[in-house]
Amino acid sequence: MQFIFWIACGLILLTGKGQPAVVSRQQTSAAIEVRPIDANTLNILLHRRNGRVLMLNVWATWCVPCVEEFPDLVRLDASHRTKGVDVVTLSIDYEDEIESKVKPFLRRMKAGMPAYVNAFAKQEDFITALSPEWSGAIPATFVFDSSGSLRETLVGKQSFKSFVTAAEKVLRKRK
């Protein structure tokens, strides 16, 4: 049974079928799109990199340091999108809070980055899928290189400078 599951995962990864797939950038701030993310979608997000670095920020609307650092993520997206960095946000608010909490916050932040909400059945699976070393403390930002390997982990509130330093460190390794 497990064998069939992994074959199916592999096919999904190869063909890109089995939507919802990777969310694109927000088109307008008025129509924010937030998708649930499960193991398959996360796998696609991490590995379909097209040569770009991924900065994946895990946050929640109830997390004060997450909210405080968010403007610097928006700024990072603006400054590094054209340099080969995809900034993606992943909220651990509940799926039934997308409309009431997540979208209004993203709208207020004028966040144009792709946005997800955790939809793993078990939070432990989500934590381990991102990094077995991660305790689950948020905010946490994971920097993956263009091959989908985790290169940097930033736990706790960051500054714009620390985001840039981590992004550029991984970008330099790409060259």
Binding site: Q123, I127, W134, A137, I138, P139, V155, G156
Partner: peptide
């Protein structure tokens, strides 16, 4: 076990 939580300040 693991779980989400707030970072200790």
């Amino acid at each position: 076990t693991k779980a989400f939580g707030c970072t200790i300040k």
